[in-house]
């Protein structure tokens, strides 16, 4: 007698897949689900490292086909020039359908963080521009690269985050999200923000960039840069409206940990000019990555307030 049948309740256990392979499989499932269940999805592309990983995962999800939705960059007008150059080169190299949206009216009216303060400036150039861009194109689902480990209010975000007609988030009335069964049902005018990187950590992102050899903006790598040195802060010299005091402007070996608008994104002093060095710095460096963003610290719980208003 020969049999290959086995005891019904016997279990087998891993490790079979590494944590990065598991995260990748989960993200790909999310991309495919959204592309199949929504009429008009879009991927919010911010040019940063998380967007770069998100883009690679989208390529994988639809391979050997092309990514079946456009990318949208909400350009505040104050992004680093290296970011814009990187974006345009990448879009050309990969044949991406890249859309750009700016709040031209606010920019024409002279909106900047020095004149308006960071809260109003972000409100106009990021949140309003994002909502207008999504509405103008009629997108019903928008992928974002936010991760739950970034900030406390993001830790409670769903992977499919329901937004009402005004694009707003209600943290007390989120849809239950169970197993990997996502509820894609919305009424006209409502939309879903989708976060395929929800379960990735900052270290996972960097490690994946290294293993997958994903191109990223050179600003992440340390080199001698012109900086305004003010107290504990390093502010990149990019915009003329940021006034400097004598002696504040210096050459500093530095890099950016996260990419935002140049007036509001602090750099750090660093020698990390390769990805392994960035990872080494990260693990020895006990400060969360958004700590260099001026905007999150305006007010206690400020990220939650921005999210309620429609920010990612």
């Amino acid at each position: 007698m020969t049999t290959l049948a086995t005891n019904k309740h016997e279990t087998i256990s891993g490790p079979r897949l590494t944590h990065l392979q598991l995260l990748e499989a989960e993200s790909i499932q999310i991309f495919r689900e959204v592309a199949s269940e929504f009429q008009k999805p879009v991927m919010l592309y911010s040019i940063g490292k998380d967007s770069s990983v998100m883009l690679r995962l989208a390529q994988k999800a639809f391979y050997p086909g092309l990514i079946p939705f456009p990318l949208l960059h909400v350009d505040t007008g104050y992004k680093f020039h290296e970011m814009i150059e990187f974006r345009d080169t990448l879009a050309k190299d990969l044949g991406l359908n890249l859309l750009v949206w700016r709040n031209e009216q606010a920019l024409a009216d002279g909106a900047n963080p020095v004149r308006l303060g960071t809260q109003r400036c972000c409100g106009l150039l990021k949140t309003t521009a994002l909502l207008d861009g999504l509405r103008e194109h009629g997108f019903d689902a928008a992928f974002g690269g936010a991760r739950r480990d970034e900030e406390k209010s993001r830790a409670k975000e769903r992977i499919f985050s329901f937004r009402d007609r005004a694009g707003q988030w209600d943290p007390k009335n989120q849809r239950p999200e169970i197993w990997n069964l996502y509820n894609s049902r919305i009424s006209p005018g409502e939309s879903i923000r989708v976060f395929p990187l929800s379960n990735w950590t900052e270290l996972d992102i960097w490690h994946y960039i290294l293993l997958e050899d994903i191109p990223i903006v050179p600003l992440y790598f340390a080199k001698e840069r012109r900086m305004i040195v003010r107290g504990d802060s390093l502010i990149p010299v990019e915009q003329s409206f940021v006034q400097t005091l004598p002696g504040e402007e210096q050459w500093v070996k530095s890099r950016l940990r996260s990419l935002g608008c140049s007036p509001c994104t602090g750099a750090i002093r660093s020698d990390a000019d390769t990805i392994p060095k960035i990872i080494a710095e990260l693990v020895s460096f006990r400060s969360s990555e958004r700590a260099n963003r001026v905007i999150d610290h305006d007010q206690d719980g400020s990220m939650e307030i921005k999210k309620r208003e429609g920010y990612f």
Binding site: S270, D271, K277, A280, S287
Partner: peptide, 19 residues
């Protein structure tokens, strides 16, 4: 904002980071 009081001394010992 991030402290710039001291440069982070990342001992870029490639062997260690590889490990």
């Amino acid at each position: 904002m991030t402290s710039t009081g001291e440069i982070l001394q990342v001992e870029a010992s490639d062997f260690l980071i590889e490990e």
